[in-house]
């Protein structure tokens, strides 16, 4: 395991409650720079909540998140992407009325600077470079067939991949992927894995919430396990299968009726 000094993101002593329900309880972990880390756990363990805390959809009650040494605990939602956090969603959240290339160009938003860039047309003139950049990205990830299509009409697997490309356009340091393989068939899963390896090879750190352990084993080198909002394990995918605490969380103690 790499030294903590090599961590890109630290999640320190984080608590989150909704009403009286404690959903994240004193969770601390580090994500190693350039790693592919999985966040796993049974349903309701708090995985997506952690993603929502990192991306700023929820505020943290107690604790601290740092990214690359910068404290982003109280950075507002639209400021987090500027620090290098980008994400995809468990239920695809592409803009349904926008085309593929427009969705991908939305990913570049934070790289456009100032009012002048905001009011340049994207299809021609100097603003055309944004469209070209998006077209290149689609080509790189094998999605060049779809630039003008309204995404609401595209197949599920394609939309999952477009979400990853959109997230990549922000030039993130860390990419959060919430159940990227859910609902995909074998071929689509393989295509997605190839895409994520490509992303990882570019030096982007991946933090992945995933139920499919086969997917986790073949993609990730580090695993953090949550149960009932607490961290119960941190280690490699090989170790996770042997950990009694993890087995108990997933399979029960064996003493139950």
């Amino acid at each position: 395991m790499a030294a903590p000094t090599n961590s890109i993101m630290s999640f320190t002593g984080v608590h989150k409650s909704f009403g009286g329900l404690k959903v994240i309880d004193e969770v601390t972990f580090d994500v190693v720079r350039g790693s592919r880390t999985a966040l796993i756990g049974p349903n309701g363990a708090g995985k997506t909540t952690i993603f929502n805390l990192i991306s700023g959809i929820y505020d943290i009650d107690i604790g601290k998140i740092t990214l690359d040494g910068t404290d982003i605990t109280h950075t507002p939602i639209q400021g987090r992407i500027g620090h290098g956090i980008s994400r995809s969603f468990q239920n695809i959240r592409l803009m349904p009325h926008l085309s593929t290339i427009e969705n991908v160009m939305l990913g570049q938003h934070t790289r456009a600077r100032g009012t002048v860039d905001l009011f340049k047309p994207l299809g021609w003139g100097p603003g055309r470079r944004w469209a070209e950049m998006a077209e290149d990205a689609l080509k790189r990830f094998g999605l060049e067939t779809y630039p003008g299509q309204v995404v609401g009409n595209l197949p599920y697997g394609i939309r999952k991949r477009i979400e990853v490309v959109r997230a990549m356009m922000a030039d993130p340091k860390i990419l959060l992927l919430d159940e990227p393989a859910a609902g995909l068939n074998n071929q689509e899963t393989t295509e997605l894995q190839n895409l994520l390896r490509q992303v990882s090879d570019q030096g982007v750190t991946l933090l992945v919430v995933e139920h499919d352990m086969h997917f986790v084993r073949s993609l990730c080198e580090q695993v953090v396990v949550l149960n009932f909002g607490r961290k119960i394990f941190e280690g490699t995918p090989e170790q996770v299968h042997k950990d009694p605490g993890v087995l108990e969380a997933y399979l029960g103690t064996g003493n139950a009726a």
């Binding site: 939602i77 639209q78 992407i81 803009m95 939305l106 938003h109 934070t110 922000a170």
Partner: peptide, 9 residues
């Protein structure tokens, strides 16, 4: 929400 996540004010 997603627009804000991608930095849109």
């Amino acid at each position: 929400n997603v627009a804000a996540l991608f930095g849109v004010n």
